[in-house]
């Protein structure tokens, strides 16, 4: 076991590596973490993912833009590839939920979707990625097949976001309990509410937070029922 001080040092290095898209630093700190016996899941969540939270803040405050975020994601993936195989299957790493994700038909832009997917995987969700330009019925089929808790729909253009409205209707008709999150450049919180989505994600870290809240809501509902 490492000392508390050393542990926070390693977390800080992982975070810094992600925030400053320094893949070498992330690689180095990830190996250090493993060599010194730091729990891999802890390193992923409190190191890499915590760094991505800061990236989300930098994106919201317009210090970072999409290219920077993509480079941060690459750095995160370097660390994740090293740490993930060492995650001990146990309480901490249990599957927190299942998610169906995809970009709606007519839209071939999948950057936002891929970032959100990455955040879900990092947090231990099982992700069913339908890819891009996905026919609306496929979301319904995949949700039914996998009994996923959440469906995430993404659209990058005004001309394609309308498909999400139809998809929400279809999904809710088939399974009223499924939680639906929508996101993408032209989408706003108002549109999400108006179309009956349960969540709206302006960016990837927020999508994860929103998803965790929705899952929590679902679990509470189940335990009451």
């Amino acid at each position: 076991m490492v000392s508390e001080e050393r542990d926070s040092e390693i977390m800080a290095r992982l975070q810094k590596g992600v925030i400053e898209f320094d893949e070498d630093l992330v690689r180095e700190a990830s190996h250090e973490a493993l060599e010194e016996g730091v729990d891999a899941y802890h390193a992923i969540m409190d190191g890499l993912a915590a760094g991505m939270d800061v990236v989300g803040e930098l994106f919201s405050s317009k210090e970072y833009f999409v290219p920077e975020v993509l480079m941060c994601a690459d750095a995160l993936n370097v660390g994740s590839d090293i740490l993930r195989p060492h995650v001990v299957r146990g309480e901490k790493s249990r599957v927190v939920g299942e998610v169906v994700i995809g970009t709606v038909e007519g839209d071939v832009h999948d950057i936002g979707k891929n970032l959100v997917k990455m955040m879900f995987e990092i947090a231990g969700f099982t992700v069913h990625d339908l890819g891009r330009d996905v026919p609306l019925d496929q979301f319904v089929e995949e949700q039914t097949r996998t009994d996923s808790d959440i469906v995430c729909l993404s659209a990058m253009m005004t001309t394609t976001m309308l498909g999400m409205k139809t998809a929400i209707e279809k999904l809710k008709a088939k399974n009223p309990d499924v939680k639906i999150m929508i996101g993408g450049a032209p989408v706003s919180a108002e549109i999400a509410a108006k179309w009956g989505a349960d969540g709206y994600a302006p960016d990837a870290p927020n999508a994860l937070q929103e998803a965790l809240n929705m899952i929590k809501g679902l679990r509470e509902l189940e335990s009451q029922g």
């Binding site: 038909e105 007519g106 071939v108 330009d133 394609t160 498909g163 139809t166």
Partner: peptide, 16 residues
């Protein structure tokens, strides 16, 4: 280019 030729909804062509 994908024109979504057989689609009844309005979908703009995309690069496939």
């Amino acid at each position: 280019v994908n024109y979504y030729a057989h689609h009844t909804d309005i979908l703009y062509p995309t690069i496939s």
